[in-house]
Design a protein around this nucleic acid. Structure first.
Lengths: 207, 207
DNA sequence: TAGATTGTTAATCGATTAACAATC
DNA sequence: TAGATTGTTAATCGATTAACAATC
């Protein structure tokens, strides 16, 4: 099962998918074109056609792409036709926000558990969940076949929690902790650090 | 003041800076090398040297880079020697989490105000702030000379709020709203969408 | 001095774009 | 049919890497 498709192409598919979903919700038309999509996203039409051509032929000359069909195809490519169970680790302010976020639904993910180590938080209701003790992390994750976890813990325990998650089979991590994590080769990590994002912009601002 | 340096190089500087800060906190040595830094970040040493060479010569043959000096230099390059005032728009769960986040301090940013349109939230204490009415957005942002805003509002008002922020001089936006925003050319936008980040990883997972 | 590591060059590798035949 | 738009090719553009003289 070799994989030739560049990461950077994979990285754009969710953006295409999101825009297509938004076109669907607008409901003004059933078709779109690479030119139309590109204009909306600030991407060249050639790039969109090239990206999609890695996976097959989804359009028709003259009429472009059927929106619903393309949504379906990209969803399959990204393995989003089933829902993925997701664990949140850390029930601080951020874990709280994530547990209440309803943007996961219909986009391929379902939060199924929230962990914390603070006895004051354990057992408390948080959105639709009861905060579980981090002691139960291993058993819960294995029983629910969870492959994806969101890290919202303090920086000093991030690597240890990561190790424990990897140990029980988590293969994808979305980390909000501002530190580089060490994981085996077959585990994906995606980072979200608001400060890093803002620092990338200040370079261009007049001080 | 032409600008030849690739965005992708600018994008790595905050990562270097974060790792250097972490080396400083460890306090085990005063110097590092491109090889050492690269190993910690999973980046080639050649790339680190090349990136830095765009801005000057910060190292010494044989001994590498003085950590404190390189921190200082990168901070200057990224315009982080002063603190930037930042506004948060949206006092929902996410705005709440951001208002309480203490990771902005010492990394170049200071949250100075939080806005919401919900009368039940306006006037309430949130962390160190009192939630202000979004009606006051324009006057407050102009008076505090705010150039950076964080968007944590519902999707249907995101573009309208963006327009208002741009109108009063905001030049950099960190948006947590899962939609493409339209802004003038001189305004930078950085997006954070957990679902997009997770969808980029599911491609690589066994369904 | 000997070992280490920089900054830089040239080669390699990879991604984007322009252009167009094919065809709906 | 005429107009529009795809998928693909080749050309261009840009980023990464390997290698090494310079030198601390």
């Amino acid at each position: 099962m070799t994989n030739d498709i560049p990461d950077i192409v994979i990285g754009r598919l969710p953006i295409y998918l999101r825009e297509l979903n938004s076109l669907q919700r607008e409901g003004e038309k059933t078709n779109t074109s690479s030119h139309d999509l590109g204009r909306r996203l600030g991407i060249s039409s050639a790039q969109i056609r090239k990206d999609l051509s890695h996976f097959g032929e989804f359009g028709k000359q003259g009429t472009g792409y059927n929106i619903a069909y393309l949504v379906e195809q990209i969803s399959e490519i990204l393995h989003l036709t089933k829902e993925w169970n997701v664990a949140i680790v850390g029930a601080g302010y951020l874990g709280h926000a994530l547990a209440h976020y309803n943007g996961f639904q219909h986009r391929g993910f379902r939060i199924v558990c929230v962990f914390d180590s603070d006895p004051k938080k354990i057992g408390q209701q948080m959105g639709d969940f009861v905060v579980q003790s981090v002691v139960e992390l291993e058993t819960t994750i294995q029983q629910a076949h969870i492959a994806i976890a969101i890290l919202a813990v303090p920086i000093d325990v991030a690597q240890e929690i990561t190790n424990r998650l990897v140990e029980v089979g988590v293969k994808a991590l979305l980390s909000y902790v501002p530190v580089q994590l060490m994981v085996p080769e077959d585990v994906k990590v995606s980072y979200s650090d608001p400060v890093v994002q803002m620092q990338r912009m200040t370079y261009y601002l007049n001080p």
